[in-house]
Design a protein around this nucleic acid. Structure first.
Lengths: 135, 135
DNA sequence: CTGTGTGCAAACACTTTGCAGGTGT
DNA sequence: ACACCTGCAAAGTGTTTGCACACAG
């Protein structure tokens, strides 16, 4: 599905910034930071606009935000778009990349009485395949 | 184990700030933010000192850091001290409290070939028992 | 005594807000 | 035409750094 169609579907205005973000995120095999996304976009958008676009896209669950150690913030397409289960995220301690492990669904937990759960986030930290090879 | 003993064990200087942080964190049944910890301490420590103390304590795995949505940063005693398994964290969407679910060990995931994992973080978001009651 | 912790001021990075003007539908 | 998106400037927040002094071991 093209960026434009996604925006239409969610009844959002099609602006070049939004389309650009979706395209970049969609074509990447890893989650990207605000900077990485901005670098890959032709038009030089203002950071403010970026943040606002991210906010909108996240609110509409077109992309999702992954935060590692309060330090790296990265974005990737959301399940709503990828149509996959809620998945675990992987963070490579070596190359600092973040990947959505679509093949690894999040395991459910049994909470104590009285608690209800709405969402579970899983972040696995380790070394990715390509960094492991290079050792 | 007392704060002073913990610091000795890790060969760290016993300073009132560090002891204070450990005591507050240890006596709380929920993870606390920098502000919450500072409020509960008698001596009025400078924020800089706080951040440095947290850093030291986290590096030595005396306490650990839990981050929710890049917004709430909270601290709690570490497994090395509690002598419990790596556990899941629970975040209440209503009252914003964070708790270490010591009774809920983190489930292991099978990664693709070539990947190795070192640590898995699990954050369950939902409603806690006391907020549920009040509804 | 010596290395390390502390407090203060200032720098920093990331993110948000207000406002005027431009753009999509 | 109108709502909403954009860019700029500025403020806000959480965190880090440099430096002089104080303190623990």
């Amino acid at each position: 599905m093209k960026a434009a169609e996604i925006l239409n579907q969610y009844k959002l205005k099609r602006t070049s910034c939004r389309e650009g973000i979706i395209d970049v995120v969609k074509s990447s095999n890893q989650a990207l930071s605000e900077n990485q996304i901005r670098e890959r976009l032709a038009g030089n958008y203002d950071r403010t606009t970026f943040y606002r676009s991210f906010k909108t896209l996240v609110e509409h669950k077109i992309i999702h935000k992954i935060i590692v150690d309060n330090q790296f913030v990265k974005y990737a397409l959301d399940n709503t778009i990828t149509k996959k289960d809620n998945h675990a995220h992987f963070y490579c301690n070596e190359c600092q990349t973040v990947k959505c492990m679509d093949a690894i669904p999040v395991k459910q937990y049994h909470l104590p009485d009285g608690y209800s759960d709405e969402e579970t986030e899983v972040l696995i930290k380790g070394t990715c395949a390509s960094c492991k090879e290079q050792e």
